[in-house]
Design a protein around this nucleic acid. Structure first.
Lengths: 240, 240
DNA sequence: AAAAAGGTTAATAAACTGTTAAATGAGCGC
DNA sequence: GCGCTCATTTAACAGTTTATTAACCTTTTT
């Protein structure tokens, strides 16, 4: 994975340099700007994953920079500034910042707060993956490595089971073969993508005609999905 | 929309009450717990939209409460505590909190920080929503690779679906054939521009007479657009 | 060593895509 | 309004791409 890019917009060379040091030590790529105008330009040229912004800046002040950015983008943004009043903090947050850190800052805390934001940004909407999945006539328990079809345990090779488990954990979502290889086989796997097709076939043999509520469907030229019928979808919604 | 629910887990009745006041003034629904054990129980019974958590708690301390919650859920969580050391703040954030506020807190800032977190959470949902398009009698979901016309799923080849998705994502905007080839087929494509016409025709066959609110229109000697009727446009504006 | 699992290949089948060419329709000057 | 030109619509075809399947080989497990 590519290193995450941080854009530091701060007129004070000292704190900018300190931030750069902390961030680079953590493996981030850092770009800096010393005034608001240059900062805005770099938002678009650098395309950072997060922006650290001082409120006090020459040319265009930090509040205004934040407003301009938020007109166009929801990129994570944190004020790091010596303006310490509650009034300022509330203003910064209301302008759309994700966090507001006052100077003098502690490097470790800045890193921890940045990580907290990335964590939130990356949180997938599905909450923690369950270890069991149940649909009409289908029960998968991945900790026991067990597949039950119509209540009968069906001997299933691990790869097959993992593939089914992954698809069934994300119902109605299409995955292409590379995604499935990455997610199920693992990142380092290199091999033909026909492998997926064959495993899908073997799964379909086991599951043919078990239920009308779900099926493994081909999405032509894209990949496969575990599809729920509309009635099954409604049942799901009620569960939540 | 339902009021957002906040769970305050704090042993100090004074600060708990103060938080409750601030939050209710903003229209949130507030539940309180005075120890870690009760707090954890209420996480599951109340199903809060956000949790405010003190680190210092009887029975089970706040750090541990946070750990337990994060094992199961990625619900927004903020420490509000009198433990002020950098060490504590970093710990709290690394345990998976979204923010860390030290006592004595300012009500306005707490609210602003809570809003910042909700803003970020909702941004994510918007991203998800961006993969779906809905108009009168027409639903396109690109993650499912599915086109619904009048509620019925219609089998649609990938190119066709992508073309429709692209046009419908930019209603009332005209694209010439080269633009569509670049955007939908991809940059490297070289072929006759009649290709577009044919795909448009096939789409129109599928969508003929579905709705008076929208249509794929020809702009003579220029290209095509997904056109909304005036009434449909008003509906759109109201939605936003 | 035998059996099971994982992966590859190649033939076959199915679905989609782009081209062509003829028909239709739109714009425009007279 | 007429007729010319040019753009679009349409249908049919051929070619290409993609998926399915069965058979086979290799690796791992028992």
């Amino acid at each position: 994975m590519q290193a995450l890019k941080v854009l530091v917009i701060d007129a004070d060379a000292g704190s900018a340099e300190l931030l750069r040091l902390c961030l680079e030590k953590e493996g981030y790529t850092v770009a800096c700007a010393a005034d608001g105008s240059d900062g805005l330009a770099k938002v678009y040229s650098v395309k950072p994953d997060i922006i650290l912004l001082d409120a006090v800046l020459p040319v265009i002040d930090g509040w205004q920079v934040c407003r301009e950015i938020r007109k166009k983008s929801s990129v994570p943004l944190v004020f790091v500034t010596s303006k310490t009043e509650v009034f300022d903090r509330v203003l910064g947050l209301e302008l759309g910042a994700d966090d507001y850190i006052v100077k003098p800052f502690d490097g470790k805390e800045v890193i921890a707060r940045i990580k907290a934001i990335f964590r939130r940004v990356n949180t997938r909407d599905q909450d923690k993956a369950a270890s069991e999945i149940h649909y009409d006539g289908l029960d998968i328990d991945i900790t026991r490595y067990e597949l039950k079809v119509r209540g009968r345990v069906l001997d299933t090779p691990p790869r097959e089971l993992e593939l089914l488990f992954y698809l069934a954990s994300h119902p109605n979502t299409v995955f292409n073969r590379d995604q499935l290889l990455d997610e199920v086989w693992g990142f380092e796997y290199y091999g033909g993508t026909r492998t997926i097709d064959v495993h899908i076939k073997r799964l379909r043999e086991k599951l043919n005609g078990v239920s009308g509520e779900w099926s493994i469907e081909t999405v032509w030229s894209v990949g496969y999905k575990f599809a729920l019928s509309e009635s099954a979808e409604k049942k799901e919604d009620n569960n939540v």
